[in-house]
């Protein structure tokens, strides 16, 4: 399977193909996709630090 049938079969619900999007401040120039990945890291870190951890029974 090559060409059009393959393209149809691997088509994803969210299509990330096509011209990329970029943001920049001064010398900084990032793809939006990379900014999202960094944001995921930051949000995961904040969530891990702030969300309450289920309490277990203390021993000793």
């Amino acid at each position: 399977m090559t060409g059009a049938p393959l393209a149809a079969a691997v088509a994803a619900p969210v299509n990330l193909n096509g011209p990329g999007h970029y943001v920049g401040w001064g010398i900084f120039h990032f793809s939006v996709a990379n900014v999202v990945m960094v944001a995921v890291i930051v949000l995961a870190l904040i969530a891990a630090l702030l969300l309450p951890f289920p309490k277990g029974r203390d021993r000793g």
């Binding site: 999007h21 900084f28 990032f30 793809s31």
Partner: peptide
């Protein structure tokens, strides 16, 4: 910053 980039809208 191409070292960090991927083609299209994919993260690199």
């Amino acid at each position: 910053w191409g070292m960090t980039n991927e083609v299209d809208n994919y993260p690199g």
